[in-house]
Write a protein that binds this DNA or RNA. Sequence first.
DNA 1: CTGTAGTTGAAAATTATTTTCGATAACTAA
DNA 2: TTAGTTATCGAAAATAATTTTCAACTACAG
Lengths: 145, 145
Amino acid sequence: MDSWERRLADAGCRITEPRRAIVRVLKEAEGPLTPDQVLEQGKAFHSTLGLVTVYRTLNLLTKLNLARLVHRRNGCHAYLLASPGHHHAVICRRCGRAIEFAGGEELNALVGRIEEETGYHIGGHLLQLFGVCPDCQKKIATGKE
Amino acid sequence: MDSWERRLADAGCRITEPRRAIVRVLKEAEGPLTPDQVLEQGKAFHSTLGLVTVYRTLNLLTKLNLARLVHRRNGCHAYLLASPGHHHAVICRRCGRAIEFAGGEELNALVGRIEEETGYHIGGHLLQLFGVCPDCQKKIATGKE
DNA sequence: CTGTAGTTGAAAATTATTTTCGATAACTAA
DNA sequence: TTAGTTATCGAAAATAATTTTCAACTACAG
């Protein structure tokens, strides 16, 4: 049994065809996908898949830390399969490819400083980085594509 | 002339009553406000204010770096008057009050490490902290409110 | 003053997301 | 296996957020 299936089962949720299809789409994706994109690609694995189920499943996966929500410029959200232990994403502005990373000591230090500076007690954060992935850097340098 | 008026004028934009009202609302606010909230409070200063103008103005201010967009759980956005030089916000989960801060060395270090780890060339980031402000900490400790 | 853009606000359109509800299917316990 | 319970599904409708359209208006340059 796949690890995500165990997590779902442990949470008292069922392993259904639609959910399998959605997780499979996320697994094969290289970058964050919007619910619409998940629906389109998911139909290949479960032809009757509906948008509502996509929304519900993405929400569920996010709540269980199996997927991560990514904020976009235009206001619509995208989702990424979570890499265990890594909680933030770098996203390529050109091709959309994403990698997750851990906040690490630097982030702890930043949070500590801000707690001192502001007196706030900090309990959570939202961090996303945007840039250009190695592949796209090459393509830009060689003028290709 | 107020600094934001100069910025608008320099950008070739006009200083209008609706805009004055919206900036005034943001100035008097302690935390990020949604377009709806800006509209309600703004009507006190310009009774015919419309929601569309609020959206347009908040967008404009954000583009000119006079306001900052804050992402929320529920998907709807809120806006904060920008403190010059500070680009990120800590937001109180209890009362909504917000303070801006600078990323500083820690954030630079983090970005540097991720560039090395991933090979991405990082050009931008989204960072927000969530926590409890000093006031609310007291209220929680004394069991008040 | 006066002309001309930039700006406004109402209504309508669009887009994102959630709710409702009868039908279906996954797991549980016999 | 075989029910039976109950989570889950998907379509349609509802809601919420945001943008577009367009005729009227007004800030500001000349």
